[in-house]
């Protein structure tokens, strides 16, 4: 059995008690943030539940392996890097999705690239980044991040 949820829940409850003892008002605020976040993320979470069902129940193993599997090579790297850069999914629900991709036949390399570009790069948020930090820094950061994500994925794939 996976012990991570047990540990995380105990940790969260510990924080709750500690926070409550220190400052009731702040604790209330924190719980409010969490509840609001849960409500906001709920549709995406349910969407992922349905998509994972579709992915594992309908999409043939062969197709996933062809585009994201061990033999997918450069195609797999580009598909996963691009997918991660374009999509805008909160990372806490992206990890379960990524795990399902692994189950469906994707390689560790492509999944690692997908997660890394998904979190580090945002095509959706790029205009805002340019506005706040200037074109040079924003474009450099996003561009270099794509290369780094690919490098990270390839290294992880080689080691694991």
């Amino acid at each position: 059995m996976n012990l991570t949820p047990v540990f995380v829940n105990i940790f969260a409850i510990g924080c709750l008690v500690l926070s409550f003892v220190k400052d009731k008002q702040k604790t209330k605020q924190a719980v409010k943030i969490a509840v609001k976040m849960f409500i906001n993320i709920l549709p995406t979470l349910l969407l992922i539940v349905v998509l994972v069902g579709l992915l594992l129940g309908f999409v043939p193993h062969a197709i996933i392996s062809k585009f994201m599997g061990d033999q997918s090579g450069i195609v797999g790297i580009f598909v996963s890097a691009l997918l991660g850069a374009i999509l805008y999914i909160p990372s806490i629900v992206a990890f379960p999705l990524a795990a399902s991709f692994l189950k469906a036949g994707a390689s560790i390399t492509t999944v690692a690239i997908f997660i890394t570009t998904l979190t580090m790069i945002g095509f959706v948020t790029l205009p805002l980044e340019i506005k706040e930090l200037g074109k040079k820094i924003a474009l450099l950061r996003n561009g270099v991040s794509i290369l780094l994500a690919i490098l990270i994925g390839v290294i992880i794939g080689a080691i694991l």
């Binding site: 991570t4 949820p5 995380v8 829940n9 940790f11 969260a12 409850i13 924080c15 709750l16 926070s19 702040k26 604790t27 605020q29 924190a30 719980v31 409010k32 943030i33 969490a34 976040m37 849960f38 993320i41 979470l45 806490i92 629900v93």
Partner: peptide
């Protein structure tokens, strides 16, 4: 796991 994680995110945001 997600409700606990969101609670932690809430604590970080406040503290």
């Amino acid at each position: 796991i997600l409700p606990a994680v969101m609670l932690l995110i809430g604590f970080f945001a406040v503290w």
